[in-house]
Amino acid sequence: MKLKEPVIREAIKVRAPFKWDVISTIELKYKQCDIDKSFRRVLEERHSERNFTKVGIEEVGKLFYLVNRTKSQWTNEYSQPVEKRNYPSPGALHSIYCLISSINDDGWYLYNSRNNSFDLLKIDTPELACFKKNCFKMLAEIKSGYLVWYLCDTNKLSSKYKNITGLAFRESGAISAIHSLTAEAIGLSFCMLGIHGNDAAQSISSECELLGVGAAIVGGRLGI
């Protein structure tokens, strides 16, 4: 399959990020998360887990605090809002959203990187329910855990670049890889899934084309 090279647009038009319909917010209280493992040990011991124990959403929040929180923000030379987080992003635009949903309820939460919170979203479509069901079916007999879904705001990313598909998947791959390492470091089970969820992503909004670019499952670990 031929994939076109991404290029910076000659005329860059600033676009506002997709606006989510938020019902309520869970504020994550902690401001730091100490890690006892050395980086070498994390690398050597990291592996995909297929067993998940019950864990609270606040514990899952530690993963996103360490990886996804906004550490600083400014405006670039094109008057676009950009950010610094703990993973690379094309143009520092950070166009990938991370949504999570527990196997045990129907709610979907967005990690709010600037407020360090989980925002409960008003989204409910048959495609979302089907996608979630298919994700959890990929791991046999799973009874606990959270689905992590990576979604690209294509309007935001395409405001600076042409041919954005490869860029979107590279960024989501970077996030999920660092999620995997960080989960190992803080004692969570993590497993990437070979599914993108693009049909479900397109069912969320007719105003913005959201692109499903990956999924994973995270939860508690046996013996931790």
Rank of each mutant, 00 (worst) to 15 (best):
I186Y: 04
F169V: 14
S158R: 03
A174C: 14
D153G: 01
H179R: 09
D153A: 00
A185V: 12
S180P: 01
N155Y: 12
N163L: 00
L167E: 02
Y150H: 08
C191N: 14
S176H: 03
S176N: 13
G166A: 15
L157H: 05
A177W: 14
R170A: 08
K162F: 07
S189Y: 03
G166E: 08
T165D: 15
E171H: 05
N163G: 01
N163E: 06
L181A: 10
S176W: 04
W149V: 00
I175K: 08
S180D: 13
A185C: 12
Y161M: 06
C152A: 15
Y146P: 07
T182S: 10
A185M: 09
L147H: 05
R170M: 11
F190L: 01
T182E: 08
Y150G: 03
I178S: 14
S189P: 02
Y146N: 09
C191T: 10
V148I: 10
F169N: 04
I195P: 00
A185K: 12
M192V: 15
Y150L: 10
G166V: 14
L151T: 08
K156V: 06
G194N: 11
G187L: 09
A174S: 15
K156H: 10
L147Y: 03
L147G: 01
E184W: 03
V148H: 02
R170I: 12
L147M: 04
S176K: 04
L147C: 02
T182Q: 09
I175P: 04
T154R: 04
C152M: 07
L181R: 08
A185L: 08
I195M: 00
I186P: 07
L157R: 05
L181P: 01
K162W: 09
